[in-house]
Design a protein around this nucleic acid. Sequence first.
DNA 1: TTTCTTGCAAAGATTTTGCAATTGC
DNA 2: GCAATTGCAAAATCTTTGCAAGAAA
Lengths: 141, 141
Amino acid sequence: MNRVIEKYRASGLKLTPQRLAILKHLEGNKDHPSAEEIFRSVQKQFRTMSFATVYNTLELLVSRGDLAELSIDAAKKRFDPDSRPHHHLICKRCSSIVDIFQDFDIELPKTLKSEFRVFGHHIEFYGLCPRCSGNQQAGNH
Amino acid sequence: MNRVIEKYRASGLKLTPQRLAILKHLEGNKDHPSAEEIFRSVQKQFRTMSFATVYNTLELLVSRGDLAELSIDAAKKRFDPDSRPHHHLICKRCSSIVDIFQDFDIELPKTLKSEFRVFGHHIEFYGLCPRCSGNQQAGNH
DNA sequence: TTTCTTGCAAAGATTTTGCAATTGC
DNA sequence: GCAATTGCAAAATCTTTGCAAGAAA
């Protein structure tokens, strides 16, 4: 995310401490956090932090392509700062998400390709994480 | 969905007219409707229809494996009555969803497979539908 | 009659928005 | 100082829930 900060500076956006804290929280984050998790974390540093700022910043990052918004979890949007193309594996019990860095050879039928303009694809694997598969009681995180 | 009705009857669930109307609306439906779309449609026949009944019925169907809940659309849950395994293609502009009935050969790395218990996978293709790719103005549906 | 289901209304959860006050540049 | 950003609070969505009344079997 450090290069994201440089990009910010270069395009005239303001580097407010709130934004920097959000960027810092996202940097290298493998938890695929929701907006609320990001809010709670950053609020520890900024007591006056608001959801508006979190959502504003997330929307900005997504629109600039520096953050991916995942729709893999039906309950809420989750965010992924890793910009490398990859897939995800979600635990159906605790909703934890892990990255899958493997390239699969996926080719759509030609008939469809001529109608739709397809940009890309994303594979969602689902199952039970090690913790949940051995524990019927395990809840969310 | 007719066989779903038989299954219902066989397991002692009540076949209320509201449920039958919801099942009828879902039968053969390729629109991947949201709960609200189902509600609006069925409400035309039952003026007193409530969201509770729609959500109750959808949850029941999902729990019995007769309906798939899609998390492909970040804005809301959408439902798919087609129980055959398949994938989806979503239009990033109007959020329309079309089915992809093609089987891709997807194999996870062994290391992951030994940790996670993986049940299955779902591929989300994204792009622009024919209508939206030729029309910058196109809105939702 | 018994049990399940409905409808209503309220509550919960997530996300968005308007706008005055503030702050980075 | 100007324009972008923040914080607050209210509102907009989507979904769930409690419970009394009603209906299927």
